[in-house]
Design a protein around this nucleic acid. Structure first.
Lengths: 212, 212, 212, 212
DNA sequence: GAATAAGCGAGACGGTACGTCCCGTCTTAGC
DNA sequence: GCTAAGACGGGACGTACCGTCTCGCTTATTC
């Protein structure tokens, strides 16, 4: 899916094999630099230095800056994210669980930076956002959709609502909030705001589990 | 408001006066370049060339790239936008009018580019988005709020809704839609999507004016 | 004659004028680096650093490494050389004067290095040697030819000799000597060797002025 | 004499033995590249590629670029050269034979290139020229010296001349000629020039064998 | 209307990052 | 242990902008 330099055609390619640790070191460094400086601000030099690697080594492995960052985004869910995604919450997802996870995530300054950088690079490199959508947003939307379906089954939501549209409204508003108004975006504020949104949307989770 | 180089303290300063046409030519060029390349991609050299002006002339008038772009954004509402804003629609706003205007605006590729660039420059230069918020979004939110209030007065919306939250939901979802999914964003698609959103939010404008 | 970047078409070109001191600083540095490392070893970076100048400044003024070195060679006669060339000796040249000047010159390690580098770059850049021939060797051969003509007039040389050939023999042998055998090439050795050559060629200068 | 990597101490070393053909292939390639690009322009990569060999193989056999080229020069007399050197002419050498051989040799562009490259690398790598002197020039000077001695015995040269000096004069002038003036250096021109030189030096070979 | 002072265009200048190319060393697989 | 293949760190290349500076020329205003 991500364009890498060498296709592994032969079973065992001749010559010294690549050091796989270097791949992850570079990807980690690349995501960091991307978050801090945006795509235009990503210099292979910086990435290489931060990864403790020669510049040529980076050029050898990725055909372009875009490929590198795309892969970094695809693989680069922070450890915390991963935990949430594979926790029991995700399987027995509840609306409350989604609200909790979302509050934690979007109240992180790093997360907001990455999203802002991604949106900023849409005009020149739409593939980056596409990768993010596939690798990050889609699975999370699925979990949230499950939670909403279940809530609807339990009568906490009106029957005639469109789940996808609900997700857009929720996700859009929260994105709008954390990107456009940068103040009042601590975790508590976010959670309160989310509850307000849900009330507005007629999602009443209070009967199931008390909100903070 | 915008940081300019020389405060005009004296009524008439000695020496050759600045050519005021140059200011607007530079601002127009700057906004263009910003939209096309993002803030990092804005080079004074390009802006100057596009404005038909020497580099020095730009540096003499704005203290930084950020100041220049901030002013360009503040002044740079396109002609079409301006017309909508000052039309009678804005004073006797209806929900339909808002939907119409919004559909036109967000289905423009140029508009979407600018918004994406602005979001992308939030981490480094939040002032740009702040300027946009004040100069562009706030007045439009006010018009939309008026329309919603009026619709509520006419019983087209539930009484117990929070207008600000409604605006966030609408604005957020539409932003989410046009930035994140790049397909299906022609004017017709957008209008249909907006109507779906409004249905979901319980805003029933159909009784007043037929939708396209 | 030497290819420079900008032709002085206009009387006074617009913009900031070039600093002429920089030209000579770069040429001096370039000749030094050429002597030390040869043409392939000349890096614009080194030249610039030694001249105390930015790399771009060098690229702005010369279109290629070859042009730069060619000009450096054309202008780069050391001060000592220049003195000899315009001294009364050159006008009332005697064979002894030529021998003296030649001994001093070719016993300098720097001189020998430059000549070696020049010969080494003939296959790739014959223009360098051509420049050296025109700017350096031709005038000196002229002086030496005068001295030989005068000596012939005084009966110190046989009548039926060919001056050009004599110059080739003398110049060639001395070059052969100082380049191929690197030992025994102090000033005294050179002078003695020169006298041997002249004896072999039937040039008897001893009647006029005692040799060292 | 030439510094090689492995001294063959043991009669038969364990493991796979080196392929001796590779040595000569590399040396041939090395001399070629040296002639074309000079010492600085010699890259092990190119040499290896031209010899059809991996880079490692070259590095394993020679400790440095200089060693490789030195050996290439020592062994690399062209086939034509070799023939001349071991022909009866060399034993019963005549002045005419020397003139003929020299004309052929120095009118070859390849020969002139090699000599120029060698001189150019004197400042950094005097050993190369020393090798050339020993392996190439010394034996040829010996043959020429024999020819001159014999000519002197036959009364074709004055008695009181110094053979070594004569060789320097001849060799120097011819080198001077073919390196410094690049024009008029076809085989015929060279031969005529040589005859002029000999006339000037009082060497009269015409009585023995007619010149072309 | 001459002097003055700033505007303006043009280009020099020092500097930084770029992506490419080659270098010499190293590490692996296979013979 | 030799050979081929390629990874790896490193250095220089020539280019493209950048922001500052220094010129000559122009253009209003002020004395």
């Amino acid at each position: 899916m991500i364009h890498k330099r060498r296709a592994t055609t032969r079973r065992v390619s001749p010559g010294r094999p690549r050091n796989p640790d270097i791949d992850s070191a570079i990807l980690r460094a690349a995501l960091e630099v991307f978050r801090e400086n945006g795509l235009d601000g990503v210099g292979i030099e910086q990435v290489a230095e931060r990864a403790g690697v020669a510049r040529t080594t980076v050029y050898r492995r990725w055909i372009s800056k875009e490929s590198l960052i795309a892969e970094a985004i695809a693989k680069g869910r922070g450890a915390a994210e991963e935990k949430v995604l594979h926790s029991p919450i995700s399987r027995h997802a509840t609306v409350k669980g989604v609200v909790d996870a979302l509050s934690v995530t979007v109240s992180s300054a790093e997360y907001r930076q990455i999203v802002a950088r991604l949106i900023g690079s849409i005009p020149d490199h739409p593939r980056l956002m596409a990768v993010y959508w596939q690798a990050y947003l889609v699975p999370r939307r699925k979990i949230a959709a499950n939670a909403l379906e279940q809530a609807r089954a339990e009568g906490l939501i009106r029957k005639d609502t469109d789940t996808e549209i609900l997700l857009d409204l929720l996700g859009g508003a929260i994105m709008y909030r954390v990107l456009i108004y940068p103040d009042r975006s601590g975790e508590k504020d976010i959670r309160l705001y989310l509850l307000k949104l849900m009330k507005e949307l007629g999602i009443d989770d209070s009967k199931r589990a008390g909100s903070t």
